[in-house]
Design a protein around this nucleic acid. Structure first.
Length: 287
DNA sequence: AACCAGGCGCATA
DNA sequence: TATGCGCATGGT
């Protein structure tokens, strides 16, 4: 599904980068659908977010997405991958539309994209996500970055690396108010920084081995592992099953996801997750 | 004031 | 293998 025939190319200008909306890219659906936790919509409707060691302001225009003050180099080296720009989402939409139920989910948010985040950042974010809600996940991640992340610009902080968190204690993390998840973050940081868990192998390992590698970490079960693999390693064949997806699968796909989703099940999952959460009466999956 | 939130670890059978 | 419970915190 990777394609070089995406149509209009990005336009590089001195004041930023323009992405054609023919790529099917909707900011709100993509940045506020529970896959990343560092994006905020500002009062002027721009979105601001930090990812890795980069940050940017983005806005949704009629025919383009505008990445403010982003250089061609930063786009090519970072945001292009982050925003999954080399995937043909129009072709994906057509393929998923072969199944009537999946089509409804895709039509509900056709501009939804699955972001390719940093593995460590995705891992930590979804450790924090367990038995938690999106608002509080966002708050904990923000305090984590403000407390321990490298300053990129006044008031803007990178996500702290594993080597920063590894020597800390749960008491050090108390200001995050992460609760029982604090010791999970520290265990993850220690094992990753010591090399006991190898994040660099996750995109090439067979899926089950990649899962087991992540599940060496206390507080990482199959769901958190699958989230790290899908959102942090581009493993789009991987389906994190949370309570929402479990209900969707039970009610709508008792035989499993349809053939048109094979190989991209994780992407299908994201459309279904978003549809179930924002349009539950259509699915009728609540009791 | 219980119950829930993109789960997981542990005890028990 | 399969349940059920507690877990920190904060919002309804």
């Amino acid at each position: 599904m990777l394609s070089t025939t995406l149509g209009p190319k990005p336009v590089f200008r001195p004041d930023g980068v323009l992405l054609p909306v023919q790529w099917t890219f909707h900011l709100a659906d993509t940045l506020d659908c529970g896959q990343a936790f560092r994006w905020r919509e500002l009062p002027d409707k721009r979105w601001f977010g930090v990812a890795g060691k980069k940050y940017c302001y983005i806005s949704q225009l009629d025919s383009h997405i505008f990445l403010e003050d982003v250089s061609k180099e930063d786009f090519e080296d970072f945001w292009r991958v982050y925003f999954d720009c080399d995937r043909d989402y129009e072709a994906l939409r057509l393929r998923f539309s072969q199944d009537p139920t999946l089509k409804r989910a895709v039509d509900h948010a056709p501009g939804l994209r699955v972001l390719r985040q940093e593995p460590w950042e995705a891992l930590c974010s979804f450790i924090i996500s367990q038995n938690n809600n999106v608002k509080r996940i966002q708050g904990i991640v923000q305090r984590l970055c403000e407390s321990f992340g490298e300053p990129l610009s006044p008031g803007i902080y990178a996500f702290p690396g594993p080597e920063v968190l590894a020597p800390l204690t749960p008491e050090d993390l108390a200001p995050l108010r992460a609760g029982f998840r604090a010791r999970y973050l520290i265990d993850a940081a220690r094992k990753v920084s010591e090399g006991a868990v190898r994040l660099d192998l996750l995109d090439s390992l067979p899926l089950e081995e990649a899962r087991q590698e992540l599940m060496k970490i206390i507080g990482v079960g199959i769901k958190v592992a699958d989230c790290a693999l899908l959102y942090g390693c581009g493993r789009v064949e991987c389906v994190p099953v949370d309570v929402w997806i479990r209900r969707v699968l039970e009610k709508l796909f008792p035989q499993g996801l349809p053939p048109c989703a094979v190989g991209s099940e994780g992407l299908a999952q994201q459309f279904l997750f978003h549809y179930a959460r924002t349009c539950s009466e259509a699915f009728d999956i609540r009791e």
